[in-house]
Design a protein around this nucleic acid. Structure first.
Lengths: 367, 367
DNA sequence: ACTCTCACTGAATCAGCGG
DNA sequence: GCCGCTGATTCAGTGAGAG
């Protein structure tokens, strides 16, 4: 993400509100390139049954049958095309989108994302730990839904908090299959009659993982099919701004009440494990300037197979090759590249210590 | 399946052979409505850009074969349209098709299946127990592939051996997510040079589940992208007839040799699917995502000597030390290691409760 | 025979900054 | 936008060979 993106004033953007109306029209009224993440749980609503098929299926002419299906898929495809185009317009260049669906609609969604130039980063399987069983025993238990994570285009710099998700998974990198329960119990919103307020309320755990992993604090998360506002509730908890769009007043009202009650986590709790890439760059020459390593001193490769001599300008010379710690290491190993910081070691009290330790000392002093 | 279908003589059908040539042309030469099941593992159209190296600098052996190169989505879609149409023609009215793909191509596959009037019965997720990691930490580990199971049309009477799959799953209804290892070890075919004979050989366990669950003994299973013949090998084991179609002579030859060695009802081979069940690993972060513990909440050590605060990414911070529940516990105790699950406690109704209790709740839900 | 270590591998759309 | 340099980055499993 570039600085100009985050700092651009967005007075016209209605933050932390639930907008009423059709999502395509509402999105078209928002400024372009203004949101960081879109999460969309569009309706399935294929309406293939009843209207389009005669009662006696076997007698329907095959061509007519195919035409009917084309017709109905066409309608859904055109709806998908329109809302995805509207979503793409309001997305920042380095923003991203998540969509969720089941086998009824997710193939249409994924194909249309690709057609519009979105670049798929992962498809993610939400593996439900407590799905509804298949009562008639005619198919496999439908125990998952599919999410697609895509950037605005190939080469875009999407946000991915790798280390935070790795931490969430106890130190092992997060996989594309997520085991999470469906939304039940106290989390499931009920209406005044005690019935579920929304038929497909998504669990907060799902949104927690998405928002934590693919946005930064302060980002704007938009949900064009807001429903009862899971996206807004989790965004608020995690210190992100949200924009919800929802047609039905009953859902908007339920979502408003729900989000009202949500408390933002405190600042320390929201601090996440960061990447080493974000740390300040320390040139190797600084270790020499500061006298942590003396010109002429010898460094030893990992495994002790090679050695090289430090020069006053912060380059190394080893085996008649001169260059940076990375270049000399790569050359000696015959490798395309080499991280000199972890490759080269110096001797202290007879032990081999990686030069990266000295860099860490400098970084610690800087804080 | 009707009796007339199974008993119709099919003299023209070349059973248990591997046919050479382009799969569309070959399928068009076969009699219509003549096969019971089609399993298709078409090219994925991966669109890889450059080389990829592991952290140890070794190069990843990527799928860069000519057969996986398509110029555009249009080109890929037209290829998909043609082979699916040819496949549909030779399928019996009550036959079914399985296709497999990754996010690169599976949305095109699924959409085109629907466009041609195939009726999707389930999408199935093959969750790999040992996928290749994401070496650069830029995305989620791509740990699954997607299969689609579809009948020839809505209302068709497909074959589904519900009880057999339930038995295979230790008495519990089979779900739409299958955890199976990728094809390695002795099962992976090697060429004379000792390299893998085919870049994308599928595991027999996957085909075992498909053929056992969705065909009857004596059925004809056709695979238009036969490769090194996993479909044929498993069909033979299970007493089904197969038809393979493959363009490359080297793959056909490897498949022929392989299938030659297979014996029908080889007990040992059938037991591949019976996998050992370990207790599922539950990362601490899941307790946070699921709202069982709130970011900012305090945990207390066993004996109440220390406390630490929960962060949104499932790490703890206590005494200025950040890290996993195990790391922070070990640091505070000055111990080399610590089981954070039994060490850390939260307060409920004034009592101290170990966080392990929450993990047990999650495990109970999963069974 | 058994254990331990090391090397290798798998359908992958896998970097970012400064000049 | 291009070029070149810096330096960040991996999980589960198999199998050969050493001890």
């Amino acid at each position: 993400m570039t600085k100009s993106e985050t700092r651009k004033p967005q007075a016209a953007l209605p933050l932390n509100e639930i907008l009423a109306g059709d999502c395509i029209e509402v999105m078209n009224g928002l400024p372009e390139a203004s949101v960081d993440l879109i999460f969309a749980d569009p309706p399935y609503n294929l309406q293939l049954r009843g209207d389009l098929h005669r009662p006696d299926n076997s007698k329907v002419d095959a061509v007519d049958d195919a035409w009917d299906q084309f017709g109905s898929f066409d309608h859904y495809d055109s709806f998908t095309r329109d809302w995805l185009a509207a979503a793409k317009r309001i997305l920042k260049p380095n923003g991203a989108i998540w969509v969720i669906g089941s086998y009824h609609n997710v193939f249409r969604l994924g194909a249309e994302l690709q057609n519009q130039g979105f670049w798929i980063l992962n498809d993610v399987v939400w593996r439900k730990s407590n799905p509804m069983p298949n009562f008639r025993g005619k198919r496999l238990t439908n125990a998952h839904e599919t999410l697609i994570w895509a950037s605005k285009g190939e080469g875009a710099k999407y946000t991915f908090n790798y280390e935070a998700l790795k931490a969430l998974n106890e130190g092992i990198q997060m996989r594309s299959d997520w085991v999470l329960p469906i939304c039940t119990g106290n989390e499931r919103l009920k209406d005044d009659a005690g019935d579920k307020a929304h038929p497909t309320q998504k669990p907060e755990s799902l949104l927690h993982r998405i928002i934590l992993g693919t946005t930064n604090a302060g980002d704007v998360v938009l949900d064009p099919f807001f429903g009862t506002g899971t996206t807004g509730a989790v965004a608020k908890m995690l210190g992100r701004d949200f924009i919800g769009i929802e047609r039905e007043e009953a859902y908007r009202e339920a979502a408003r009440k729900r989000i009202e009650k949500v408390r933002k986590f405190d600042r320390e709790a929201l601090e996440i494990t960061g990447s080493k890439r974000a740390e300040p760059r320390i040139p190797f020459g600084q270790l020499v300037e500061r006298g942590m390593l003396r010109p002429g001193e010898e460094l030893y490769s990992i495994g002790n197979r090679f050695k090289a001599k430090v020069r006053a300008d912060g380059t190394l010379v080893g085996n008649d090759v001169k260059g940076s710690i990375h270049q000399v290491g790569a050359h000696l190993e015959g490798a395309p590249s080499c991280n000199g910081w972890t490759y080269w070691h110096f001797k202290r009290d007879g032990k081999m210590v990686p030069i990266d330790l000295l860099r860490q000392q400098i970084r610690a002093e800087m804080n």
